[in-house]
Design a protein around this nucleic acid. Structure first.
Length: 753
DNA sequence: TGATGCTAACTTTTT
DNA sequence: GTTAGCATCA
């Protein structure tokens, strides 16, 4: 440990802020500090450590355990803000009028409810888009603003007036009431209700203030107001609060996080001990220099000088490709080459992108080259319809108040309870002032509904007798849900069936986790559901260390490190994202995001960008990202390694001259590109005077010429006039492709042969 | 009422 | 390119 790190570990009492640069051994300091506290005789039950991801929490616990060499660490209160608060809220739920087994709604659930509220209010859901409304409500909750305060806040009202959405306050009000009625909290409620609990129940406040003698907060720059206030309240008695953060890595302001909390912290306490960790142990000097140079373009930052005594390392390779597919191909080739040449394993590589939608071309290229890979994020396992259906059943069994989930499965698998019947029950329930479940339970006069109620009740009797897995299996069987999916013989149906099986397996695994000595692990369904909503894909993955290339967004990569990193899609409009290009604060956050991406790399770094890529099914063209221009030329590797691009040539380049000029203005890149074009053998040079023919004239059997792929024969044409797709057999090396005729620019070489 | 097929909207980032 | 939601038909 260096001096600064040691200082941070040994300073145990009183407020402290650790400003920890990327790769400066932050986790090591935190874990050693916890171990140090425990060695000093502090009871593990008295230490609270809050993180942002389950993964970070698990890692922290594990490392403390390793340092101590005993099992005491399991008594630590370590977890994410959301999971720790959820745990406390369950224990205190009745105070707030919630059932202790309240349901946690994820973002999709929440948007669904908002959508139905908007429709019930006879508003247009095109204007009051659920996602937009949800974000407004979420932002309000993160700022501790309840529906009444929302309607009275003149600033908020002005904003809503400006966007012509005057009734969001009302929607918020109804939404909050509906969640309450359903016995459910959304993600933001877990923070907001925690605040409510502490402010409205002094005994609860006192209880938790005295329980936690030491509080540690990781990734402090990502906390929002609600989190900040709750921490402050919890720590008010002992004031042993230690926060760790790095303003340069603040990338969650869209979720209400504010760097302001770092500045505020110093004002809120007297004698804040401040320790700066500036030595980086992770990356090469070159990588660190690049990162420092890039972040220097931001105006708003806490001054610090990150340095390292590591080797200088290799330069940054910047690669330009023509299309997104070529980008994918290049990365796969480069990974192959590195593996052979420098003996890296698959798991040493990460491909980082700005948006999840970019994963496709890399997925394809990895598969083609037989490189094992794993994608994080995107469509989460738990967001899949079949998984949500299954979980909806399980949730209803535990909490019948939850109307959203009840409606979701009351007629799935189909049992003849249609829209009209559900509508009728809803109306009657409202009249009788009952919940939906109470209404169907009372007397429906409908045998189909009665059978449904009987079935759910029979599951409920299993709750006390059987563990989560047994209940889930019974549900899968008796509802016919598993059979329903099994009967679908399509590949998608099979995948859905497998997903449900995977869910069942994960429940089984949960129930088979052995009891630890001294503490009984609750294997009931209720216990299982409590933790499930707060899990993400990354947490479910038991093969964290599997030898696979990792594909993820930069956001998801925060806190991780890899020997080799590819930052892809370095293009204007994509990164910086077009949503964040026109506002200084937003742009600076994008730049911090790039900073985070760069500093994930230990040994080698690549950045790539494509001149054109598909977005929403249409080809678009982008300039190279402005961020690339912020890297000093001295750090750029201009010798291209000479792989990939086999099917490309400059003639095939369809982008216009304007684009080309802009590109030429970047000298460092131009040289690189020149080298690149030289090394790529043209596979097809278009016929002189190449001009695209009218796609409407193209028919099966014709031979056509493509600028890149050469001559090919149309074997099939499908789709309507607007989106005709032709299946074309090209020559060797290109194979059979499906091409959208409206975009492809094809020349008819020969009529029917 | 349920299945099928077409259109439109969609992409920032996540607990 | 994908998916959700709607309209149409059985």
């Amino acid at each position: 440990m260096n001096e600064r790190q040691l200082e941070a570990v040994l300073h145990t009492d009183g407020p402290m802020m650790i400003v920890a640069g990327a790769g400066s051994g932050k986790t090591k300091v935190l874990t050693t500090r916890i171990a140090h506290l425990m060695n000093k005789g502090i009871d593990a039950f008295r230490i609270l450590a809050l993180t942002f991801t389950n993964k970070a929490a698990a890692e922290m616990k594990e490392r403390v355990e390793t340092i101590l060499g005993n099992r005491e660490a399991r008594n630590l209160y370590i977890g994410t803000f959301h999971s720790v608060f959820a745990r406390i809220l369950r224990a205190e739920a009745t105070k707030l009028g919630y059932p202790s087994n309240f349901t946690i709604y994820d973002t999709d659930d929440a948007k669904g409810i908002i959508k139905s509220i908007v429709n019930e209010m006879q508003l247009d859901d095109k204007h009051y888009k659920p996602a937009f409304v949800y974000n407004r409500i979420s932002a309000a909750k993160n700022s501790l603003i309840d529906p009444d305060a929302y309607k009275l806040d003149s600033h908020i009202q002005q904003e809503d007036a400006r966007s012509q959405r005057f009734r969001i306050g009302e929607i918020y009000d109804i939404y909050a009431k509906r969640c309450f009625k359903n016995g459910a909290m959304d993600f933001d409620d877990l923070l907001f209700k925690m605040y409510t609990l502490l402010t409205q129940f002094p005994d609860a406040l006192a209880k938790y203030q005295h329980r936690f003698h030491y509080i540690l907060i990781d990734e402090f720059q990502d906390t929002n107001l609600a989190q900040y206030v709750v921490i402050k309240m919890l720590g008010a008695v002992y004031e042993n609060i230690c926060v760790v953060g790095d303003d340069a890595q603040s990338i969650y302001s869209f979720r209400g996080a504010t760097v302001q909390n770092i500045l505020q912290f110093q004002d809120d306490y007297e004698d804040v001990k401040i320790v700066k960790l500036e030595q980086n142990y992770r990356s090469t000097q070159t990588i660190l220099n690049i990162a420092n140079n890039v972040i220097a373009n931001n105006k708003n930052q806490i001054p610090k000088a990150l340095w390292t005594s590591n080797d200088e390392g290799e330069k940054l390779t910047v690669v330009r490709t023509l299309t997104d597919n070529d980008e994918g191909r290049f990365v796969a080739d480069a990974i192959m080459e590195q593996k052979l040449r420098n003996h890296f394993n698959n798991k040493d590589f990460a491909i980082l992108y700005r948006t999840n939608a970019q994963s496709r071309s890399f997925e394809e290229s990895m598969r083609r080259m037989n490189i094992p890979y794993r994608i994080y994020g995107g469509l989460s396992f738990y967001q899949r319809k079949e998984v949500k259906d299954m979980l909806a059943y399980l949730r209803i069994i535990v909490n019948t108040q939850d109307e959203e989930n009840l409606k979701r499965i009351i007629n799935y698998p189909a049992r003849g309870i249609g829209k009209t019947s559900i509508e009728k029950i809803s109306v009657r329930a409202n009249e009788m002032n009952r919940t939906f479940w109470e209404e169907i339970e009372a007397d429906s006069g409908n045998s189909k509904i009665d059978n449904f109620v009987i079935m759910i009740k029979s599951f409920q009797t299993l709750l006390t007798k059987k563990n989560a897995y047994d209940v889930a299996v019974a549900v899968g069987k008796e509802t016919g849900l598993v059979q329903d999916l099994y009967n679908e013989k399509t590949p998608e149906g099979l995948a859905r069936y497998e997903n449900v099986q995977e869910l069942l397996n994960s429940i089984k695994e949960f129930t088979e986790t052995p009891d630890e000595e001294g503490e009984l692990h609750d294997k009931s369904l209720g216990s299982y559901l409590q933790q499930i909503t707060l899990l993400t894909d990354a947490d479910k993955d038991k093969e964290q260390d599997a030898d696979t290339v990792k594909l993820m967004t930069i956001h998801a990569a925060k806190g991780l490190e890899f020997p080799c990193v590819f930052v892809v899609g370095m293009e204007e409009n994509l990164f910086p994202n077009s949503m964040s290009m026109y506002d200084r604060d937003d742009l600076e956050e994008e730049r911090r995001l790039f900073y985070v991406a760069i500093t994930r790399a230990k040994k080698r770094l690549w950045t790539t960008y494509a001149n054109s890529r598909y977005r929403f099914g249409t080809l678009i063209q982008n300039d190279a990202s402005r961020f690339l221009e912020e890297i000093p030329e001295i750090h750029l590797d201009k010798t291209f390694t000479g792989i990939g691009f086999r099917s490309e040539n400059r003639m095939a380049d369809t982008f216009g001259n304007v684009q080309q000029e802009a590109f030429d203005k970047m000298p460092s890149l131009k040289k690189l590109a020149d080298k690149l074009t030289q090394s790529s053998a043209p596979s097809h040079t278009p016929t002189a005077g190449f001009a695209a023919d009218n796609p409407a004239n193209m028919k099966e059997g014709m031979t056509v010429e493509h600028q890149k792929f050469g001559f090919g024969k149309i074997v099939a044409v499908e789709g309507g006039t607007k989106s005709r797709i032709a299946t074309i057999e090209f020559g060797p090396g290109h194979g059979v492709k499906k091409i959208m005729l409206n975009y492809a620019r094809l020349r008819i070489a020969k009529e029917k042969s």
